[in-house]
Simulated scan of single mutants.
Amino acid sequence: MTARTCPCGLSASYDACCGRFHTGRAAAPTAELLMRSRYSAFVKGDTAYLLRTWHPGTRPGRLDLDPGTRWTGLRILDTVDGSAFHTTGVVEFRASYRGGALRERSRFERVDGAWVYVDGEFPQD
């Protein structure tokens, strides 16, 4: 990742990609873009965005991120639904960090028209 590219792995700059979602200038139009923006929020330490985009029924009261975690990359493994024409979606991904990786199959829903993260399963490799 260069200084110009977004942490989520797409070729756009952070401001043109996930940054616009983080600031509220735009809403993620698909479940995959919301998942990418949430990964970028983990990279940036943006807990407010993570909580704001979490389903109200599963959202924790607070979120404490480990400041020592250094996220190094994101790979989308699978997507099911989650487009502008759906109300639910699933995105499976692998998020790498120094010393390891996290694989999750995340569920997303629309709440009041906006995509939110519901929960996830952690498949074994």
Score class of each variant (00 low, 15 high):
107 R>W: 08
101 A>I: 10
121 E>Q: 12
29 P>F: 03
12 A>P: 08
123 P>L: 02
120 G>H: 06
73 G>C: 07
73 G>F: 07
38 R>M: 05
73 G>P: 05
25 R>P: 12
92 E>V: 12
12 A>W: 09
44 K>L: 11
45 G>T: 01
37 S>E: 00
8 C>Y: 02
8 C>G: 12
89 G>F: 02
99 G>N: 02
61 G>R: 12
3 A>M: 14
46 D>W: 00
92 E>W: 04
67 P>D: 00
50 L>Y: 00
85 F>R: 13
97 Y>N: 04
124 Q>L: 14
10 L>Y: 14
74 L>G: 00
4 R>K: 15
47 T>A: 10
50 L>P: 00
119 D>S: 13
51 L>M: 13
107 R>V: 06
47 T>V: 13
21 F>V: 07
46 D>I: 00
108 F>A: 02
46 D>R: 00
73 G>W: 02
46 D>C: 00
81 D>Y: 06
81 D>E: 13
16 A>C: 14
26 A>T: 11
115 W>Q: 03
100 G>V: 04
3 A>E: 15
39 Y>S: 01
50 L>V: 07
109 E>W: 08
37 S>I: 06
6 C>A: 11
48 A>K: 08
11 S>L: 15
53 T>R: 05
57 G>M: 08
2 T>A: 13
119 D>H: 11
7 P>C: 13
7 P>E: 02
108 F>R: 02
1 M>H: 11
106 S>T: 05
11 S>T: 15
31 A>D: 10
68 G>T: 03
85 F>S: 13
57 G>T: 13
94 R>T: 10
79 T>M: 04
107 R>K: 09
123 P>V: 11
102 L>W: 06
28 A>Y: 01
96 S>A: 15
5 T>C: 11
7 P>M: 01
91 V>D: 00
